[in-house]
């Protein structure tokens, strides 16, 4: 086993394999750092900024920052959580998020994060920008009202499906999700089995005809806050050190 990189997150010692990012090491160690654009299996992107942590006091996105020996990472602090709350509120007022009828509700990562952070209403002014819906494809729907520009579909289409169905056009507040055709999704080589359709954290990219399949009460985040899967319940014989045998205080003392 290659010797790992050792560092701390919120005072807890964790190890990372060379080349791993902070968020990957945190996941392995059972520490959940909130995120939206990051998804294991996709290239790091660093756009949502929710996973911002401080390394030695300096903020950086943990999904792009490589783990390094001895760094001191802070994530679950009042200050950083306040920034995360502000970022979530920004996303809620930027898009038009009608959770009450959205097919993704209950399984939506944006919504789940807002629940986790106890947001009952964004304090910023709603923007109510008009965003286009593309229902041209018989089996797939794009609702840009809900898009948070995380580029998960862009990356998945390119790297997992070997296509380039999705991308961005425009800049600043006018940046929006676009498809690789003059106008419509149905004119692209997208397929309903594409992995790109599985990765959307919100309800912007959906397969048709399967909405509301899971009843309220049985959906992913109805009872369990987002990140619970990462944090998990440690196994009885697990000290929670994340497998860092050479540094784990509890195994050394035993």
């Amino acid at each position: 086993m290659t010797p790992g990189i050792t560092f701390t997150i919120d005072g807890k010692q964790v190890t990372a394999a060379p080349g791993q990012t902070i968020i990957e090491a945190a996941d392995t160690a059972g520490i959940y750092i909130p995120r939206l654009c990051h998804k294991p299996g996709l290239e790091p992107f660093g756009s949502c900024r929710l996973c911002t942590v401080t390394v030695g006091g300096r903020p950086c996105s943990s999904c792009t920052q490589p783990a390094a020996e001895g760094i001191v990472v802070e994530s679950d602090t009042d200050e950083l959580n306040e920034h995360r709350r502000a970022l979530l509120e920004m996303l809620f007022v930027e898009g038009n998020h009608f959770c009450m009828f959205c097919e993704k509700s209950g399984n939506c990562e944006l919504q789940a994060l807002a629940y986790k952070f106890g947001i009952t209403a964004p304090s910023f002014t709603y923007q109510w920008q008009k965003h286009d819906v593309d229902a041209s494809h018989p089996q797939i729907l794009i609702d840009r009202n809900r898009c948070i520009l995380c580029a998960r579909c862009v990356r998945a289409s390119q790297d997992l499906d070997g296509k380039s169905v999705f991308g961005f056009v425009g800049r600043g507040p006018n940046k929006r999700l676009a498809v690789n055709a003059e106008a419509r999704l149905s004119d692209t080589n997208v397929d309903v089995t594409d992995e790109a359709l599985d990765v959307c954290p919100v309800g912007a990219l959906l397969r048709k005809h399967v909405g509301y399949k899971v009843p309220i009460g049985k959906r992913q985040f109805d009872h369990t806050p987002i990140g619970s899967d990462v944090e998990g319940e440690p196994a009885p014989d697990d000290c929670g050190c994340g497998g860092a045998e050479n540094v784990c205080q509890c195994t050394q003392s035993e």
């Binding site: 038009n96 998020h97 009450m100 009952t120 709603y126």
Partner: peptide, 18 residues
């Protein structure tokens, strides 16, 4: 404010982009 209509406009606010 109780309910989504009071907190964010709700279904009636679907007209807000038009």
């Amino acid at each position: 404010s109780i309910g989504d209509c009071a907190t964010m406009g709700g279904i009636p606010a679907l007209r807000n982009t038009v």
